[in-house]
Design a protein around this nucleic acid. Sequence first.
DNA 1: AGCACGCCGACT
DNA 2: GTCGGCGTGCTC
Length: 682
Amino acid sequence: MTASWPGRVAVAVETPRHTSVSGLLDYASEQPLAPGTLVRVPLGKRDVPGLVWEPGPEAEAAPPVLRPVTVALTALPPMGADWRALVAFAAAYYQRGLGELALAVLPPELRKLDDTQLARRLKKLAGAPPAAAAAPPPALPELSEEQAAALAVLGTPEGRAKPVLLHGVTGSGKTEVYLRAAADALARGEQALVLVPEINLTPQLEARFAERFPGRVLVSLHSALTPAQRLRHWLQAHLGQADLVLGTRLAVFASLPRLGLIVVDEEHDPSFKQQEGARYSARDLAVWRAHHAGVPVLLGSATPSLESWQRVQEGRYRRLPMLQRIGGGAMPRVRLVDMNLLPRGTQERVLAPQLLEAIEKRIAAGEQSLLLLNRRGYAPVLHCGACAWKSGCPHCSAWRVFHKLDRTLKCHHCGYSERVPRACPECGNLDIAPIGRGTEKLQEQLAALLPQARVARLDADTTRAAGSLQQQLAEVHAGEVDVLVGTQMLAKGHDFRRVTLVAAINADGALFSSDFRAPERLFALLMQAAGRAGRDAEQAARSEMWVQTWSPTHPLFAALRKHDYDSFAAAQLEERQAAGLPPFAHLALLRAEARTAEAATGFLHDAAALIDAATAGVTIYPPVPPFVAKLADVERMQMLLESPSRAALQRTLAGWLPQLNGLRGAHKGLLRWAVDIDPLAI
DNA sequence: AGCACGCCGACT
DNA sequence: GTCGGCGTGCTC
C-alpha cells in the first residue's frame, strides 16, 4: 500500500505474492521518477530490481521511515502506460505479484546492467543504420478469393473491432493474410507483433516476413536467443526501432510503443500457455492487449481452440473462413486401420501390413512418408520376466525410458539417467525386455522392414544440438530421406513438399486420458499432421493420412475423415456444456508440493475449508494427484475450483490466496503451492 | 524468494 | 570445542 507524497515513489518489487510483503513498496527518491522507470531498491539486506509504479490507494499506516532508491536506470525510457496496464492485468488475473511478473517478463540481462552500461547499449543501437539499402519490394502473390475476402473484412474498422478468428486449413494461405495485415500496420507507421507457438517455427516465418518487408526492422523474441541478443531485440522493440516483432509466448509482453497489430498463429496450440511460474496464456493476453490498445488481433488456426470457437458462436469474435487449399489441392484422404483386426501378437511389433504396403509404394514413386509416434526413446519401460521388476524412476512416479542408442534408462520427467543394467537389478535375471515402443524402435523396425529405404528419425533426441533441426529438415527437403519417423514436433508447421503419406502410429493414447481436453488436442494434432501431406497441390489428390487405432468407431475419427472441424467442435461443445466444463465454466487449480502426499493433501483440505463455496458461487473438488504424482522426490497434489462465473472465481481467489500463507506452519514438509488459472490439463 | 538468526548432531 | 543441518521470520 502506498500514498502519493513528495519525495516518495511506489515501486513494484520482485517478491512472491504469497508473502506478507507484496504489492507496491514505498521508497524515498530525491528526484521524481516517472512510472515505468527501472530502479534498484534495498529490500532487507539485499538490493533488488524494481519498477516505479503509479501509487496505489492511500495506506492507513505508512512505514515511519523510508529507505532511498539505490539507483534509477534513467538511461532506459520508462515502460509505457499500455505495457504497465497489461502487466497489471496479467498479475491480477493470474494471481501473481505485480513486481514478480513485471520483472519476470523483462529480458533477464536488463537487471544485470548499470545505468552507464545501459546507456552504452542504447547509444550503439541508436547509431546502427536502420537496416541495409531496401531491396526491391517483392512481387505480391495473387490472392485467393478467400484471402481477398478476409482482407476486405480486415480492412474496415468494423472488421477489426472484434478479435478475428482466421479459420484456415493447412495450406489455405493464412500466412499471406498475416503478411498483408502486417503491411497495413506498417503503412500506418505502427508495429506488428506476431506470436507463434514454438521456437522451431520462428525461422521459416521470419524468413517470409524478412523477404516481404526488405528494409524494415524485424526482430525475434524467444528463449533460445542468447541473453545479449534477447536484450538487443527487446530494446529495439521498446525503442520503437523494430517494425516487426516475431516470437513465442514471452513476446506477448514485449514493449511496443507503436503497436498496431497482433497475430497469434496456431492459436489453439497449448504451448501458448506458460506452464511454470506465472501461468499465463499468451493467446488470451494478446486478445486483452489488443483490445486495451485498440488494435486488431488476428487468431489463426485450422483447428481453433474450443474457447475461441465458442466466442465466435457468441458473436464476440468474428470468424473468417479459409477452407480451400491454395492451388485447389484436396486434403489428404484419411484411412483408419483397425488394430483389433490385426493378427494377435503382431500388433505391437510391426505396422499394419496395408500401411507398410502403402509406404513401399511411396518409396517406389520417390515420395516421402511421415510416421508420427509420440514417444521418444526405444521403449517406454523395461521389464523383468522373472520377478516383474520394471524400470521405475526412483525419484518420480514414472517409468524410465529405455534409450538403446546410448544404452541408458532415462526419466523424461526429472532427467535421472543410468546405464541400462545387464541383468534385473532385483533378481539378477538376465532376461529383461523392453515393453512397448518409441521412435528409436520404430525407426529400427522400419529399417529392417524396408531395407531399400532411407529411414530417418527426428525428435527431441536427434535435434538437441543447435541447428540440427534445421539441418535435418533440409535433408528431408532435399529428398535424402524416404521415411521420416518422429514425435509431434514433426506435425507442426513444417512445409514438406514431397510428403504424400502421413501416419499416426499410436493415435489412441490420448483417447483414454482422463483429461477432458484430450480429444480436442488429438483432433488438432491429427488434422495438423494430415496437413503435412500433399502441400504440393499436384500431389494432394494422391496423399493420404493413415491412423492406426484401437477405437475406429470413435466419433473423433468420423469427423477427421471428413476434415470436419465444425461438427467435431459442435459435438465437443455440447459435451462440455453438459458437463459444466470450459468454455462454459471457468477453472482454477491449486497445486501443492510437499515431502509427503499427506502434507500436500492436508494443506489443500485446510485451504478448501477457508472458502464458503456456496456463498462464493464456486465448486471445490477434492484434492487429487496429478498424472505424475511424485516428481524429483516431491509429492504433488492438486485441487480444482470451478465456477460458471469468471468474476466469482476471480473474487474468491483474490480473497483466498493471501490467507494461504497462514496455513504454511500447520503442514510439516509442505514445500510450496501455486495457483494455475485456466489450467490446460487437469 | 533470499537471507538472516537460532538451536541441535558429528567432525578437524 | 566448531561447522552446518534446515526450521522460522522479516523484508517499504
